[in-house]
């Protein structure tokens, strides 16, 4: 398995270089270093000299990919792409254009994101799987039908509606939780109740239907009939045998997102005032801060690759037939 992991990690390097190259190309097709300078220098009293100074100070005065004025290998290395990209591979993200350290910013902001995402994921999984198993238990009855209709209704509602509705009901009308805000440490709990609740409720429709479909597929398999023939209670058949055998598709969906939980959610964090990473990339694109954009895209790629690797590894835990070589 070690060889497999090493091989997968080595595969990641060209993927990351490719992602970085595409990010770089896309960013600079849309924006020039002059545009970036103007955004950062503001709308008033901006001179051509100030733009040149800004580019020089931030290292954007070099050619993008090929430096004809340099000699030897420096023609390729003394370029914007190489100078701005190489450090990423040792997770040195440098400074944002407003001078703040990107690595520190990510380290500080990932915890609030995780504080929402992890309870939402775990509570959501428990709720969705239980609800789906319940529907499967009552399959082909009015309860199942009512549950599916409820799921479709919940799926049809915009995610933003849950956020605003939750804030209106629990925060404004009933005054039970703060509408938005965040405090570090244990004080965070009262701010997390509402976003976690909203996150779980908004996912009920889609996730429950997905899991119900998985479980229904399993219900028609031979081992279920055998379990019933042995005289096992239906609850035991469902929770021990069906759930166990449905774990591979569940894990495929869940484990892959675990590393990316750090990256947060744009809408939830914006509306609930959570100082997470959710809006970091979007704000950076709006501000044309390439340093942050490339760091976050790189980090997202790394976490995605990590998620896929973890998913593969998790198969070995739930299915003894799977071997990674």
């Amino acid at each position: 398995m070690t060889a497999y992991i090493v091989r997968r990690l080595l595969y990641a390097i060209p993927i990351l270089i490719g992602v970085n190259l595409i990010t770089f190309a896309l960013f600079f097709i849309v924006n020039t270093p002059d545009d970036m300078a103007r955004i950062h220098l503001g709308a008033k009293h901006v001179t051509a000299e100030a733009i040149e100074r800004w580019k020089r100070e931030h290292g954007y005065d070099k050619p993008l990919f090929y430096n004809g004025e340099a000699a030897g290998v420096a023609r390729l290395t003394d370029t914007l792409f190489v100078q701005k990209s190489l450090r990423l591979f040792v997770f040195d993200f440098g400074q944002a254009d407003d001078g703040r350290d990107i690595g520190r910013e990510i380290r500080e902001r990932m915890w609030p994101s995780l504080a929402i995402a992890l309870p939402t994921l775990l509570t959501g999984l428990a709720v969705y799987i239980s609800f789906a198993l319940l529907l499967v238990f009552f399959r082909a009855t009015y309860l199942d039908l009512a549950g599916v209709v409820l799921c479709v209704v919940l799926m049809s509602i915009s995610g933003l509606f849950y956020v605003i509705g939750g804030q209106y009901l629990l925060g404004k009308l009933w005054n039970l939780v703060p509408i938005s805000g965040y405090q570090p440490g244990l004080d965070a709990v009262k701010f997390l109740v509402l976003p976690v609740l909203v996150g779980v409720v908004s996912g009920i429709g889609e996730s429950t239907r997905f899991y119900r479909t998985l479980f229904l597929e399993e219900m028609h398999k031979d081992y279920v009939r055998t379990a019933r023939a042995k005289g096992l209670a239906e609850s035991v058949v469902l929770f021990r045998h069906v759930l166990g055998n449905a774990m591979i598709p569940i894990l495929t969906g869940v484990v892959v997102v675990i590393p990316r939980l750090f990256l947060g959610s744009l809408i939830v964090e914006s509306f609930f005032g959570i100082p997470g990473l959710g809006s970091y990339t979007i704000d950076a694109i709006a501000a044309q801060d390439f340093a942050i954009v490339r760091a976050m895209v790189f980090l997202g790629s790394v976490l995605y690759i990590l998620g896929l690797l973890l998913t593969d590894l998790s198969y070995t835990l739930v299915d003894p037939r799977v071997r990674l070589e």
């Binding site: 804030q167 509408i179 509306f271 100082p275 809006s279």
Partner: peptide, 14 residues
């Protein structure tokens, strides 16, 4: 920090 108008307004009214 308030990124959205709706919670900002609601908290003012509260």
């Amino acid at each position: 920090l308030e990124k959205e108008d709706i919670p900002e307004w609601a908290k003012f009214l509260q």
